[in-house]
Design a protein around this nucleic acid. Sequence first.
DNA 1: CCGTGCTAACTGGTCGGACCAGTCATGACC
DNA 2: GGTCATGACTGGTCCGACCAGTTAGCACGG
Lengths: 231, 231
Amino acid sequence: MTKRPERIADKIAEKLRSAIVGGRLRPGDALPSERELAEQYDVNRSSIREAMGRLETWGLVKIRHGGATRVSDFLMGAGLELLPHLVELGGKVDPAILEDLHSLRGMLLGWCAEMAARKADAGDVEKLEGLVRQLSDPKAKSSALQVLDYDFYQELVRISGNRVLGLFTNVVREVYLKGPDGFASLYGRDVFDPSHHRVAVAAIRARDGAKAGAAMRAHAATALRTREETT
Amino acid sequence: MTKRPERIADKIAEKLRSAIVGGRLRPGDALPSERELAEQYDVNRSSIREAMGRLETWGLVKIRHGGATRVSDFLMGAGLELLPHLVELGGKVDPAILEDLHSLRGMLLGWCAEMAARKADAGDVEKLEGLVRQLSDPKAKSSALQVLDYDFYQELVRISGNRVLGLFTNVVREVYLKGPDGFASLYGRDVFDPSHHRVAVAAIRARDGAKAGAAMRAHAATALRTREETT
DNA sequence: CCGTGCTAACTGGTCGGACCAGTCATGACC
DNA sequence: GGTCATGACTGGTCCGACCAGTTAGCACGG
């Protein structure tokens, strides 16, 4: 948990990022000039420039030679790589974003289970069954269960063969498993009840896409419901 | 079509990016030192540093103070922000990735149409109707229709209120509208037949989520089918 | 009075050269 | 053979200068 010695540009980019996604800097606002920022933070202009470069590649600001650097409407222009930053706004998890993420993931979960049912071979099914077995271990910790649950998801994505969904999954994993226990503390242990997974795997083995999708959607819905109850 | 005068850091980052995703630089390989690169490209080291910063935020390289900068295994851990770079591998569009992208987008299209039906207010519906009107213009160019079609999608996402889906959409837009005509040349004009959009808007106005979702899914399926026919 | 166009004071972009701060291979020493 | 100092790398930060676009304001001609 100790902070690694961070580059100046990263620290400043981080400050500004948080100011932007936190709403203290609104889309359209002009940032102070690089020279001003350099003086303000008491660092060299080069460091400010590198920080600005990061903000720009994150889609948070628009730099124009000769004109002021302005905050862009990042919800309009930023990519998914911003997600990890949005989630831990000021160190606290933003529940609304998390809600969005989970509902989206739930739907994708169902969808790729359907595709997996059409494409899985014997080896794939075996892998999934292995994961279900581990998920059923009564001695497993909640954090471990969360990882397994995600591994199951990622395996479904792999079997579905959709590489774009694979990239998406990589980003979400970073968010989902953040921190020492991921979000395990946010959810009860029952969230990882493997019964839905078991049903899904059986359906995939039987090439029943609809049933597999329904099972995984039910699993995701359970997670959401459990979360609402604890709110 | 004329190239805007590009920053040299961007040009160099672009060169290296293409070398990495093109496989000329493999994961684990060490890049030349910043001083070497500066001499090699005959630019200042600052420009090289800014280029490296971009590569790092793209997840393509790992920079370590004191050690060499190495290409990271982006295929394993990279996020969706890499999609635009992957698609134009070597200047050519990879049809398989595009296929994955379209099927995923189609499903999301249906899903957020359902959510939009639950959340849209009068102003939202009006906006959608305006877009449908423009889509119905018989004089519109194919490229313009593609932009409108995407605007319609993006508007649905906005109405759905799912911010994570919004971020995803931003990335996809970059890919989808790449090049002078986007992918308009890949699809026939009939792909942008607005009849499905019309049905969807009517359903959203009537709060009929299922119908709206079905209409947009049908639209996406048409696009895919049309593409397969022309293959 | 309005518009036009020049100019000056901004903005970001590039330069080079100095020095600080980690890493790592090498080789003397135990 | 192991270990640890050391120097030659690597990237990180700083400075100060100048180039190159943008913009706002002012003087000028209509």
